[in-house]
Structure formats: C-alpha cells, structure tokens
Design a protein around this nucleic acid. Structure first.
Lengths: 138, 138
DNA sequence: GTATATTTGCAACAATGATGCAGATTATTT
DNA sequence: AAATAATCTGCATCATTGTTGCAAATATAC
C-alpha cells in the first residue's frame, strides 16, 4: 500500500518524504475529497502547516490530485484517476457534495455532459458540482 | 437607475442605506460576477471592510445575489435574475470563467443539462462552471 | 559515503473573515 | 414633523488562512 504511494511519487519525479507519503496515503484511504482543514485534522502536528500547503500545491501541479471548487472560500482536493497521473489532466467526472454529511464525492462513473455555448466562447474545462443527499444519508 | 436598486432593497424589506445602494448598483452596472476583492477595489474607503462582508451576506440570504464556486479560495458573487428575487432561488444557468481576462460571466441563456446520478443520490442543485476563452478574448 | 539537490520547519508577515458593542442612520408610529 | 423603535455601520479586536525567506534537515545522485 505504501509502495503504491511511493511509486506515484517516483513516477512524478518527486522526492519520497514522510509527509508526502503520509498525505498521499490519506487520499488513497478515503475515497472522498479532502479540504486542507480535513487533512490538517488527520495529521495533527505530524508536520508543519506550511508543509501541507506546499505538498498539496506540488500534488496539484503534478496532476496527482485535482481541485474541486466550492462556495465557502475553501477548496477541496481529490485524487486523480490513473489517466490523469501521466500529467495530462482529464477529470471529466461529476462532483457531488452532500448537504447532510458534507462529504465531497467524485462520481467517476458520471461523465460531464457536453454543453453548447454561445458563439465566440471556447470551452476548455467543464466542472459540474451537484449538491444534494448522498446514498448513505438517505 | 438608483430607483431600481432601492426598489429591490425595499422588496426584500431591507433598509435602504448608502452602502447597500452603492454595492448593488455596482452589480447592476457590471454584468459579470464580482469577488469580494473586486468590490473592495471599486469602493475604496467608502465604507468599512466589515460592512462589505455583511452586505454581501445579506444580499445572498435574500436571494439578491448568488454565489459562484471557484478553485482559488475565493468566492464570486453575481446578480440573480428577476425570478430569484422573489426569494426562491433558481439560478439554473451556466457560469463561464475566462482563462484570459479572468472574468466570470453568467450565461443566462445556457441552461444546465440534467445529469443522471447513480441510485441513492438525490439532486438538489446543479452547478456548471465552464472555463475557457470568452467572446471578447478570442 | 560524500556531494548536490530538494524539502522541511520556523519565524514573521499579509490577507481574509468574524464578533461585540457604541454611535449613527433608517424606518415607524403618532 | 418629532419621537421612538429598529436596523445598520464603523471601530477595535481577534481568529483563521495563506505566503515568503532562510537555515537546518533530509533525500537523491554519484
């Protein structure tokens, strides 16, 4: 399990350090998206706040995790599927935020629909965020 | 023009104050979404930072403006169309963020597509954010 | 194992957001 | 139109969140 994590880091030419292994493992374990605060809670004082910021930044830059926009001045991070890991990013799935448990879930099976824009607009990326009640909170 | 603004405030049973009129006018003038920082820049020292926070909060609560999620730890606010103003919220249109000029635009004409979720998920709200190049930046 | 490159932690700082409360402004009542 | 009641604003203060420079620690390359 930790070997997987280390492999991912190496594939991205990143030094294998305690903090990176720990943080990436966290994402592997939980299959829902995590906010900065979520991770900070889980890791406690294991490493500095700054390290977490920089680690997340590094992971995003390398396409290991991707950002999910929110309306509450926070950002959620989620693991990218294998296809992204190669550096090219296509997390074209829908994100679901549960109003009850507040989890953010990647619905990998649900692809984003294509949307026709008015003349003159060129689409680069489509992000779909659905809020509602998730399966476990019904 | 200012009368429109005052009418909206009255319709929502809000006191008509200088700051509210000014801020709401700003939204009427620009037809794209504004961040807290954008507004602060426009208004200068006209009123306190705190007043701006509280005003935006009040507007959101009353359905005068709505939130647009972003990936940069900020939130954008945009005017709601007439239908929302009554208190019931249905800003079911697509939001577009231009990678070039960085404007956030409400594409009122483009309705969000319906998305089928896996069993057990109940949809409450669908938010679609498309990034790319806007008409003026081609 | 040593040298080089990278990463971490600390300190300090900047920016952002929240709250209590007194004074000012707006709405309401007569 | 004046007095009262209700609401809003600004200030001070604080909490949280994010950033940067630099020396020490750790990881990689040789």
């Amino acid at each position: 399990m930790n070997t997987d994590v280390k492999e991912i880091l190496k594939q991205n030419r990143l030094s294998v350090t305690d903090s990176r292994v720990k943080i990436l493992s966290l994402f592997m374990k939980k299959e829902n998206a995590l906010s900065h605060a979520d991770i900070e809670k889980s890791t406690g004082d294991l490493f500095d706040r700054v390290t977490l910021y920089r680690t997340l930044q590094t992971f995003v830059e390398n396409g290991i995790i991707h950002l999910i926009p929110t309306t509450d001045n926070s950002v959620k991070y989620a693991l990218c599927k294998d296809e992204c890991a190669k550096g090219h990013h296509h997390d074209d799935h829908v994100h679901f935020i549960c109003d009850a448990c507040n989890r953010t879930i990647c619905l990998d099976a649900v692809h984003v629909p294509s949307v026709k824009l008015p003349k003159g607009f060129r689409t680069h990326h489509v992000e779909v965020i659905i809020s509602g009640i998730c399966e476990s909170c019904q």
